[in-house]
Design a protein around this nucleic acid. Structure first.
Lengths: 217, 217
DNA sequence: GGTCAGGTTCTCGACGGTGATCATGGCGTC
DNA sequence: GACGCCATGATCACCGTCGAGAACCTGACC
């Protein structure tokens, strides 16, 4: 049995959601809250498995409430529900720790499905939201940059890559020599070749490249 | 009527998918291809609305094929199908332009649903994949590290921040002097103060900090 | 099987250029 | 005038380039 908490400022919406959700025998609404400020308290009191959270609410909005709830020990999963699929909402909700983000025009059957998926530890987004997320992800050239950077690293020898990593950490040549057991002169030679191979003019540039390539982290 | 192309090297899988998809009256499989190399040609010939693409295939794999298909004029939507939800596959598929990413254990009804969602211009991922994507998104935005880095930048003066940005680009002190119209000696003084304020011992470390803070990009 | 030439990688010391610190002074604000 | 910010030159430490030797692999040739 999956225990649910519904957080929405409109009683009618809460009633509708409760109706839909309890049509499934595995779901039980154990509590309701009418704004974000009450949400955390209700979570502590009733310990639901999943929280359905509206965004637009008086006092504390759904995003802040989600953050608050996720900060609790052994927090429940949170599914954010909203009428608007604004980018900003989506990203902030996901970063606040939400496991789902559904639009209010989601069909009842999918809502039930989403709650179950989330309770099982996976995630569920409305299709339109998924599209936005993917769009942003693909547009986020970071991973692209990473692959490009990695490509350039292919020409390096093992030793050179080790030295490069150390440079990326911000170590001095002397420090690198100590940690890799070689003289400072040798370190310099490696760094010098790395500079040539990566077409850089100083160590700062290769350090950044090392980071872009994900060599550190 | 939504027109489909199925790309998979195993005839049995193709037959199974076709069976599932054509159980819906709005879906029609207009062509099949048995590897990625054939996929693009089939797209040109049959102009499907949606392509279901396996990843592991002989000759050209599904990721490369997806890129190829998306490079065509007025390309169809692509749904990638795979047994393994490896991170790397997911990200590369989405960046290759896929609109969906489903695991092969997806129930038939959801597969049909996903194809329709994608045909309508939205996106659909398997729940487990969605969870990964969100995880990476939340982690990748690095807002944590970024906020931390930004905090430390608060102590800097405007001029120091300008110099720091230039250092982050990998410029030499001489170059920074030229671009910011000050003598090299002045640049050095600024850099030196930045090092103290950011508790770093050399310019590489502050360059990385500058990147983490999102000063560059 | 030996070996010999060619290439690659790792190692190192010495030299000149670059980077980092320190002390000092000008300029505006409070 | 005390303070914070910006600017500068002298000094010393660090970094990057150069040339060169040692160890190793690879393939060709006898």
């Amino acid at each position: 049995m999956t225990r649910l908490l519904i957080v929405d400022d409109e009683a009618l919406v809460r009633a509708g959601l409760k109706m839909i959700l309890e049509s499934d025998d595995d779901l039980e609404v154990v509590a309701e809250a009418e704004d974000g400020a009450d949400a955390a308290a209700m979570v502590v009191k009733h310990r639901p498995d999943v929280v359905l959270m509206d965004i637009r609410m008086p006092r504390l909005d759904g995003l802040a409430a989600t953050r608050e709830v996720q900060a609790l020990p052994d927090p429940p999963k949170v599914v954010v529900l909203t009428t608007f699929d604004l980018d900003d909402y989506v990203f902030r909700a996901l970063q606040a720790g939400a496991s789902g983000f559904l639009l209010k025009d989601t069909p009842p059957r999918e809502l039930v499905q989403a709650v179950k998926v989330v309770a099982a530890g996976d995630a569920m987004l409305s299709p339109a939201v998924t599209r936005r997320l993917i769009g942003h992800f693909a547009a986020d050239s970071r991973s692209d940059r990473q692959r490009q950077a990695r490509k350039r690293l292919g020409a390096l020898t093992d030793r050179e890559r080790e030295v490069l990593t150390a440079v990326g950490r911000g170590l001095s040549n002397a420090d690198i020599g100590k940690t890799l057991y070689m003289s400072e002169a040798t370190v310099k030679a490696h760094v010098s070749r790395v500079l040539v191979k990566l077409d850089a003019t100083n160590r700062v540039q290769v350090a950044i490249l090392a980071h872009d390539a994900g060599l550190l982290d």
